[in-house]
Amino acid sequence: MSKIKSSVLKNIASMKNTFNNEKAQSSNGARAIIINVDDLGLSSAVNEAVIKLAEHGRIGASSYMTGGQITAAEIRTLADLNVDIGLHFDLTGIFPSDLQGSLRSLVITSYLRRLDSSQVTDIINRQLDGFEDIFGHAPVFIDGHQHIHQFPIIRQSLVKALNARYADGSKNPICARVTLPLVNDLKSWIIYSLGGRAWRKLCVENSIATNHYFGGVYGFDANFQKLAALWESWLTNAPRTNHLLPAMHSLPIDIESLGTYAQYGSTTPAIHSVPNALPSNLSPTLIMCHPAVPAANWQDDIKAAREREFEWLMSRQFEQLLQEYEVRLVRWSDITNNK
């Protein structure tokens, strides 16, 4: 374990040295951002949060944990709201398998190359099969619970499985989450150091479209005011995209008390109208979040943090922050549709 820790720290130092050089921001245009809710299916409280946020146009994507709970009515509502649904590949959460265990044990076994690739591939295919059975289509994108999709053995098995299932063009192209840090904080760099650079390289080599920078990382200990400060930091650091117009008001701001950042045919009145045409080389920033509506019928290690996130994302203050930083909320499918 000490060798793994030493290797991680060396990787962090190396990557930080190139961080400022790589992150050149444009001076004009809006900020193209995917706001993605992780852990769809974990509980009805998480599912309800995804739907409510989508109805208000605050998010456009969510990643589903195969083996979780979701109703046919919730699936129809998410489809009506044009929410992109991806696979939240899971070996450390709720999906039952022979490899199910703690994040620590998975890091050790993957970096010591003790994972059986055929076993990993089988679990990947089982989760993809389960996803397709539930939603009736392939996932729009892939990410990993606790970012395990970028670990050694897992990342190679995942790319091979995706190519075997989808590379013939019979189904829509699949995007993938990469974890290049949006802000220069230790936890973000630790996540990226655990296979993030190698995963990005694999995606490029296999023509898998990805986000560019990745934000939303924090210790799940923030109150409402701290969340506001974190989001302002993430939006401040999100690069602008040339030739991308910010959202424009099309209806009076007082149409709805909370307002909405809706687009793509949302069911709520759109007070921000955004044209669908996007630059062909769009590579948006991804900000993950983990909201859940307040509910007493379930428990989770970060339940309180999830409920605070939901309060923040539904707030008027959050919408005003999106306006202030000229955010264009885009979806994963916008990346592939413009290639």
Results as ranks from 00 to 15, higher is better:
residue 32 A to L: 07
residue 45 A to C: 08
residue 105 S to W: 08
residue 49 A to W: 00
residue 141 F to M: 12
residue 121 T to C: 01
residue 103 L to H: 10
residue 74 E to T: 03
residue 22 E to F: 10
residue 148 I to P: 07
residue 131 F to E: 04
residue 149 H to I: 13
residue 144 G to Y: 07
residue 19 F to C: 13
residue 145 H to Q: 11
residue 148 I to L: 11
residue 154 I to K: 00
residue 63 S to W: 02
residue 47 N to I: 01
residue 38 D to V: 12
residue 38 D to C: 09
residue 58 R to S: 07
residue 101 G to T: 12
residue 77 T to C: 09
residue 64 Y to Q: 02
residue 118 S to N: 15
residue 113 R to W: 11
residue 127 Q to F: 13
residue 148 I to C: 12
residue 42 L to Y: 10
residue 95 F to V: 02
residue 92 T to L: 03
residue 43 S to G: 01
residue 57 G to N: 08
residue 47 N to T: 09
residue 76 R to H: 05
residue 26 S to C: 13
residue 151 F to C: 05
residue 54 A to G: 12
residue 111 Y to I: 10
residue 137 H to F: 07
residue 50 V to K: 01
residue 66 T to K: 00
residue 72 A to I: 01
residue 51 I to K: 04
residue 25 Q to I: 15
residue 142 I to Y: 03
residue 120 V to G: 01
residue 124 I to M: 05
residue 93 G to A: 07
residue 31 R to D: 13
residue 80 D to G: 01
residue 73 A to F: 05
residue 60 G to P: 02
residue 128 L to R: 01
residue 60 G to A: 12
residue 29 G to K: 06
residue 61 A to F: 04
residue 137 H to P: 02
residue 58 R to P: 01
residue 121 T to R: 14
residue 54 A to Q: 05
residue 142 I to P: 03
residue 83 V to M: 03
residue 112 L to E: 07
residue 25 Q to V: 15
residue 150 Q to C: 03
residue 127 Q to S: 06
residue 89 F to M: 12
residue 134 I to N: 00
residue 105 S to I: 06
residue 124 I to K: 01
residue 97 S to K: 08
residue 62 S to Y: 04
residue 153 I to N: 00
residue 119 Q to E: 07
residue 60 G to D: 08
residue 79 A to K: 15
residue 121 T to P: 00
residue 79 A to C: 04
residue 106 L to H: 06
residue 94 I to Y: 00
residue 86 G to E: 01
residue 69 Q to E: 10
residue 153 I to T: 15
residue 31 R to F: 07
residue 23 K to S: 14
residue 46 V to D: 02
residue 145 H to I: 12
residue 152 P to W: 10
residue 115 L to N: 06
residue 65 M to K: 00
residue 124 I to Y: 03
residue 77 T to V: 06
residue 96 P to L: 08
residue 107 V to T: 09
residue 66 T to E: 10
residue 111 Y to F: 15
residue 119 Q to K: 15
residue 145 H to C: 13
residue 107 V to C: 00
residue 33 I to K: 13
residue 138 A to G: 09
residue 115 L to A: 12
residue 148 I to D: 02
residue 30 A to E: 12
residue 155 R to Q: 13
residue 113 R to P: 04
residue 62 S to C: 12
residue 26 S to H: 13
residue 147 H to M: 10
